[in-house]
Design a protein around this nucleic acid. Structure first.
Lengths: 341, 341
DNA sequence: CTGAAAGCGCTTACAG
DNA sequence: CTGAAAGCGCTTACAG
């Protein structure tokens, strides 16, 4: 047994002094350099762990000009000031966090105060990280293009846009919108509404799938049935109730999130409609709570956790200068009760 | 107009060269040192922004031996391997993130792989941060004590425990458990179950409030009515359905989270019970979705977002060596339909 | 009010 | 295989 060290060992130099070698040698030993004599290496590593010493990450990263930090920015809806309570975000965050820790990267969490998107390039979010993952594009497509043009390694979860110049990972939104809608048509629904903010690329794509399904069934789209619903539940409910007061004729709704679908069901029920008998509802995301709503939600499943890991692999590839292409993850209709099937 | 700088200005020295002063002077100017001549300071600040230069945070923090990072650890239920989909976590995270950005601190997000709690003291989570916020104690009370004993600035969201030696912020759990239970008693319920993992300090306190309310009404507690329910929805539902198959007589349930309450309602409905007519249900947290369940959830509201900011103020106080006491945030019964009122 | 110098804890090209 | 030396970009005690 060696005796307890008189003072904490807090640098390579301290350990080098104890071992009687130079700090260069200790550095190499602890970094498993092949230059070092195997025996010396083992001895120094043992000594380090005996003294409970680990290399100062901050100094090391500074020296190597690396941070091993990835920023994650959640794009909030410009119209709702609140924090999103959508479990979708949490699952996505979990997937990203898992992916990053696998690669020994840290996760820096950021809000997206939309106003500040303009000078994002000089923000700590970007400056302190090796790359940035954006969850959602919001209505900031051009700001994202600009950031990518500036050479910042960024990857975005969202929908495709014509002049996109950043790396994109997303679900099959057009396919999802299409299968939700055509499933409702197959159940005999004819007056199908689309609920959501169609100014975001993801929702645009879902909407195009919706339109395609209608066209395929020779149904006329009715613009009164396309409704911009805020993404937070309280506001959504108010807007939907106002809509119902206008007595617009409809027998089904396609929503851009499960949370919105749950708010819609509440508003519909409140107004005396039966779901799905009077009006069928389909959600999007398949969050865990979807199967517990009443009626249980028919929805489009996205593999959110997998999305997180793909996002991570993609930024890291970018950072390491590898070729990397956009990814589209499959979406799948999950039939429960709310669609009336 | 000055002409476009030939090369990027990437250090104090670069800017000092341009300005014809020493880098010490530039450093002082950009840090608003009062030593510096006001005019010089303005001139250098203008020059910096003109050249789009900001101080290298990594170098600065390294020099000052600070990180301006706080780690946030979510204590997952030891029994559910999944990520928590509970919106409670996301709201808490939002509150913490807001608080930290107010103080120019970064948020390092961590999982709590319970197995590794033992050597947490030497993990990057602790080493790379100036302090740590734990959300929930899980069953790791002693590990938290040990970490606090080691002098790490930590603050914990949770419930009180006799031999606690760390700083604690929490809701009024005993009060919440009491008012949920006594409200049900006031509605005429007599066979009231308690659903949750009572091995965590928070739930222990809620359970003690439950017991107190029963005692006050001269009701005998029945241990068959105290049920350990996992915190994730899918497992919760299975356990509850098994329980119902045992035909235990009950007319109400107090749950330790809204998410659990929603799973309980689904299981009860599935088994042919009517909520609240046959069995009343009360949740905990008042997450946004609580008012949208059917029936809408009676629950105990905790000001989760405020909790985040209190947690932040508390760790920062600790880091700065200030005196700081535990905080108990008030809890409030929110009556909706699920309790039968 | 300003500058020259030291030093934070590391890594690595260079020399031996 | 090992060491002496330079340097990452900053801040600040010290001297003027």
């Amino acid at each position: 047994m060696s005796k307890i060290p008189p003072r904490a060992v807090s640098s390579l130099q301290d350990l080098a002094d104890i071992a009687g070698v130079s700090r260069a040698t200790v550095s190499r030993a602890l970094n498993n350099s092949t230059l070092i004599n195997a025996e010396t290496r083992k001895r120094l590593q043992a000594l380090a762990s005996e003294h409970n010493y680990t290399v100062n990450k901050q100094a090391r990263d500074f020296r190597l000009k690396q941070t091993r930090v990835i920023s994650v920015v959640f794009m909030l809806d410009a119209h709702s000031e609140q924090h999103p309570s959508d479990p979708f975000f949490l699952e996505m965050l979990g997937g990203i966090a898992d992916g990053l820790s696998l690669h020994d990267y840290d996760l820096l969490l950021a809000h997206a105060p939309v106003a500040s998107m303009r000078d994002l390039a000089n923000s700590r979010i970007v400056r302190n990280a090796e790359g940035v993952i954006f969850v959602g594009q919001g209505e900031e497509h051009q700001a994202l293009n600009k950031l990518a043009d500036a050479g910042t390694p960024i990857v975005v979860w969202g929908g495709s846009v014509a002049d996109k110049r950043y790396l994109l990972v997303g679900g099959d939104n057009a396919g999802g919108g299409f299968s939700a809608t055509s499933h409702l048509i197959a159940q005999g629904r004819r007056r199908i509404a689309f609920f959501g903010n169609t100014r975001t690329p993801e929702n645009q794509a879902r909407f195009s799938g919706y339109e395609k399904a209608l066209a395929q069934a020779n149904l006329q789209p009715d613009e009164k049935l396309t409704v911009d619903i805020p993404s937070d539940m309280q506001h959504a409910q108010v807007v939907i109730e106002n809509l119902l007061n206008k007595r617009i004729d409809m027998d089904a709704v396609v929503c851009t999130s499960d949370v919105m679908a749950i708010a819609a069901i509440a508003a519909l029920t409140e107004s005396g409609f039966s779901v799905p008998d009077d009006i069928a509802v389909v959600g999007y995301d398949d969050i865990p709570i979807a199967s517990f709503s009443s009626p249980p939600l028919t929805t489009i499943r996205q593999s959110i956790h997998q999305a997180g890991s793909v996002l991570v692999e993609s930024v890291l590839a970018l950072i390491n200068g590898h070729q990397v292409a956009d990814t589209t993850l499959s979406s799948k209709l999950v039939v429960r009760k709310s669609c009336g099937a």
